[in-house]
Each structure stands twice: as C-alpha cells, then as structure tokens.
C-alpha cells in the first residue's frame, strides 16, 4: 500500500518537472520528438535509480557515521558524474544496442539537476503517511526514485507530443520557440494541479 502511495504521489501529485521544477532543461531541450523524449526518459530512469542507490548508501554508511554530512553536495555530484561515465563505458562494452539508444543522452544527464535533486531529496525526505513519520528506508527510496523518474518521463513524453503538434501550427513570431513551450508547460502544469489531494 505505502509503495502505491509513494508511486502516485511522485508521478502525478508532486511531478518532478511540473511542480518541483527539477530537470526543466532537458524537459525544454529534448522534447521535440516523442521518440527522443522516450529515449531520454529511459536513460534518466536508469541513471537515477543507480545513483540514488549509491548516494543513499554513502549518506547512511559513510557521511553520517563520520559526521561529515556537510560534504554531501561535493560527494553526491562526484558520485553521479563518475557513475554516468561508468555506465557509459559498461553499456558500450556489454550492450552496444542499448548504448546506441541511450548513449547520446548519457553525457547530458550528469548536469541534469533532477538526478542530484532526487539524491538530495531522498535523504532529506520524511515519509509522513501512516502512524509515525520516519526517514525513507532503502526500498522506499528506490521506489520513490523510480516513480519520480517515471513522472519525469510522463511529463517529457506528453510535452513532446504537444510540441510535435505545435510544429504544424502558425505561431506569432515573438512566441516562437521557448516562449510558447513555457506557456504550454504552464498549461500542462495547471492540468497536473488537478491531481492535488489525490493522496
């Protein structure tokens, strides 16, 4: 039950792009075609799940026991950057076809603030549903991360569909490009506000 609540809350109610404003750059940058958007969503899900696993373990088994929580920002970003590099190398060796599909998005991901953002959120978030509030445990963290990544993918693919349509319509000159994309994203965010109160 609690996993379903985490899932719905992270995908719809607190959508990472449309209500938390993380990962807006790739959201605006790689959303011109549905196919590209799906590739990016896959790559982000994969990297996010791995990096949160790594940073969660580091936080509770290294940083907290040593009392150096202030090193969080530096340690997390280094781990994520190294992980992305490693994933790239391993994928190239083991599964060239998957590398073909995700490869070009991987370098973009290390500067995607959603990945670092989720890693920080997971260790700072209290799970308030049910009897007593407690910090997320490892399983809940992973579910939360994957759900967040799915929410990112959902927003990205929906938005790419809208932008494919927009290519065909006649848009006033000052609105062309980013402005109309932002306004559309705003309307999409309005629609997602309808999910508030669902959990």
């Amino acid at each position: 039950m609690e996993y379903i609540i985490i899932l719905i809350s992270a995908v719809f109610v607190n959508n990472i792009v449309l209500s938390q404003f993380l990962g807006v750059c790739p959201f605006l940058g790689v959303s011109n075609k549905v196919g590209t958007a799906a590739g990016m969503a896959g790559a982000v899900t994969f990297v996010m799940a791995l990096s949160t696993l790594a940073t969660y373990l580091l936080q509770y088994y290294v940083l907290v026991p040593l009392g150096i929580e202030f090193m969080q920002t530096i340690v997390f970003i280094l781990v994520i950057a190294a992980l992305v590099q490693m994933v790239e190398i391993i994928l190239k060796k083991i599964s060239p076809s998957l590398y073909q599909a995700l490869g070009i998005y991987l370098p973009l991901i290390s500067t995607n603030c959603a990945v670092l953002g989720v890693a920080i959120l997971v260790v700072a978030k209290e799970f308030t549903f049910g009897s007593d509030p407690h910090m997320l445990n490892l399983a809940q963290s992973i579910v939360f991360t994957i759900a967040t990544a799915l929410g990112f993918g959902l927003a990205l693919i929906l938005f790419a569909g809208l932008r494919e349509q927009m290519e065909l319509s006649n848009i006033p000159k000052p609105f062309k490009g980013t402005p109309i994309a932002l306004i559309t994203a705003g309307i999409l965010a309005l629609a997602f506000m309808g999910f508030a109160g669902l959990v």
Binding site: L18, S19, P174, A185, G186, M193
Partner: peptide, 15 residues
Amino acid sequence: LAPGAFIALGYLLVL
C-alpha cells in the same frame, strides 16, 4: 504556484 512560473516566464520572454 508552479503553473504561474512557466506562464509568467513565457510571457516575459515574448516581451
């Protein structure tokens, strides 16, 4: 709230 951020920035860019 969140939608207002996107819409306000969009119109500022238009301007």
